[in-house]
Amino acid sequence: MNKSNNILIIGGGIIGLSIAIELKLLGAKVTVINRDFQPIATNAAAGMLAPQAEAIPPGKMLDLCLKSRTLYPEWVQKIESISGLETGYWSCGILTPVYTLKDRQNYALPNLNYQWLNQVAIHQYQSGLSPEVIGGWFYSQDAQVDSPYLYKSIIAAAKELKIDIIQGSVKEIICKKGKIQTLKTSIGELEAEHYVLATGAWSQELLPIPVFPTKGQMLSLKIPSDVSTENLPLQQVLFGNQTYIVPRKDGRIIIGATCENIGFVDGNTAAGVQQLLGNAIRLYPGLRDYEILEFWWGFRPNTPDEMPILGESNYDNLTLATGHYRNGILLAPVTGMLIADLIWNNQSDPLLTAFNYSRFMEVGSKV
C-alpha cells in the first residue's frame, strides 16, 4: 500500500494498540477508535506468558505463541523506553504442580527448557504447596507481565508517538464493491484508506465473524503485612488444576480465572469467587489467611478452535486481528509486528496462513 495512506484501527485494547504502535513506527498515520470498556480482555488477563505451562499442542498456534514469547523482552523494553512507564515484565518461570500422574501432561519439545520435579523436589523447590501435590513441571522460559501496568504503558507509548486515540463506538461498517467505505460511529462518520478490526469479544457486532465472549472472573489477594516484598513466598507463577496463582513483585497475588460461556453477563458471582478461592487454596493452602483486595471480570474473545483470526479479509482494505481468547497478552508483540508488516509492507508471514478467517467460512459467505 502507499505509505502516505492513513489507517484506522477499530478497538483500543492491547491488540489494537500494539498494531497501532508498530504501524506508527513504520511511518503510518494511525487513528484508533475505542469505546471505553472496563471488561475488555486485557483487564481479565493475569498476564501469564505461558505457551508451555498451558500445554499448547505442537502446531501453528504453539509456533505463534513461542515466537511472541521470544519477542517479549525486547518488545517491552521498546514500549517502556517510549512511554517511560514499567510494564511489570518478570521472567519468573512457571511451575505446574499436579495432584495425580494422569495430570502430568507435557509436550517434549526440542530446544525448550523444562524439568520434571518429583514430589520431594517440588516441595523443596516451592514450600507451602498442598501435600496433595505429587510433582510438577517447571518451565523456566515462561514468564509474566503485569497486565494493567502493560496497558497503561502501551497507552502512554501510543500518545507519546502522537497516535490519535478517539473515544467512541462504531455502530456500523459501510461496505461497497469489496471495500470498506466508511464507519458510522457515535461521534459521526469516519473514513480511512485502510481499516483494522481489533474489537475482541465484540467483533461479531460489526461483522459475521465467529468470535464470542468467554467470561473470566478473577480476584487478587495481598501478602501478609509482616512478609517483605523482598522475600516473597511465591517466586514464580503456579499453574495448577483449574487455577493459576500469579505473584506480583509488589505483594499482590492474582488468582484466576473462570471460563464461562454465558454471553455478556457482567459481574462477579458467589459461585465464581468460591471456585477461584477453593481451587487456589487447595493448591497453596496458605492463601486462606491472605487479605482479599478486589474482584473483577472481563470477556475473552473466543473462537470455535480457540485460535485467533489474523490477516486479510474479503474486503480489500480491511485486516482482521481478533479472537485471541486467553492469549491476547502473550500474542500482542507478534500480532502487532505481523499485522503491521502485512499492511504496510504487503508482507504476509507464513505463520498467518493458519489463522486466516477463511477456515470458518462457508461457500458464498463474506466477512
Rank of each mutant, 00 (worst) to 15 (best):
P110F: 13
N111R: 15
N113T: 05
Q115M: 11
W116E: 01
N118R: 14
N118F: 06
V120W: 12
A121L: 13
H123F: 11
Y125G: 02
G128P: 11
G128I: 14
S130H: 09
E132W: 14
V133D: 00
I134M: 12
I134R: 15
G135K: 14
G135D: 02
G136T: 08
G136Q: 10
G136F: 08
G136K: 07
W137K: 09
S140P: 04
S140L: 04
Q141R: 09
Q141A: 04
Q141V: 08
D142T: 06
D142G: 04
A143S: 04
V145K: 10
D146V: 13
S147D: 00
P148D: 03
P148N: 08
L150V: 11
L150C: 12
K152L: 12
S153G: 02
I155L: 07
A157W: 08
A158G: 01
A158I: 07
A158C: 06
A158Y: 05
K159F: 05
D164H: 04
I166Q: 03
Q167G: 00
Q167N: 02
Q167L: 05
G168R: 12
S169E: 07
V170N: 02
K171C: 02
K171Q: 04
K171Y: 01
E172K: 15
E172F: 06
E172W: 06
I174P: 00
C175G: 04
K177E: 00
G178F: 09
K179Y: 01
K179V: 05
I180D: 00
Q181E: 01
Q181I: 07
L183I: 05
L183A: 01
L183V: 04
K184V: 12
K184F: 08
K184G: 03
T185P: 01
T185E: 01
T185D: 00
S186D: 03
S186N: 08
I187D: 01
I187P: 07
I187Q: 09
G188T: 00
G188R: 01
G188W: 03
G188Q: 02
E189D: 03
E189K: 15
L190M: 13
L190S: 05
L190T: 09
L190R: 10
E191N: 04
A192N: 10
A192W: 09
Y195H: 12
V196P: 11
A198S: 08
A198L: 12
T199H: 14
T199L: 15
T199P: 13
G200A: 07
G200Y: 05
G200V: 10
A201C: 05
W202Q: 09
W202C: 09
S203C: 07
S203E: 00
E205Q: 14
L206N: 06
L206Y: 14
L207C: 06
P208W: 13
P208G: 02
I209T: 06
I209W: 08
I209M: 05
P210D: 02
P210V: 12
V211K: 15
V211G: 03
P213G: 04
K215V: 03
K215C: 05
Q217G: 04
Q217I: 11
L219D: 01
L221T: 04
L221G: 01
K222S: 04
I223Q: 07
S225I: 14
S225L: 14
S225N: 12
D226K: 06
D226S: 11
V227R: 14
S228H: 12
T229S: 10
E230H: 11
P233K: 15
Q235T: 15
Q235K: 15
Q236I: 10
V237E: 01
V237Q: 10
F239A: 08
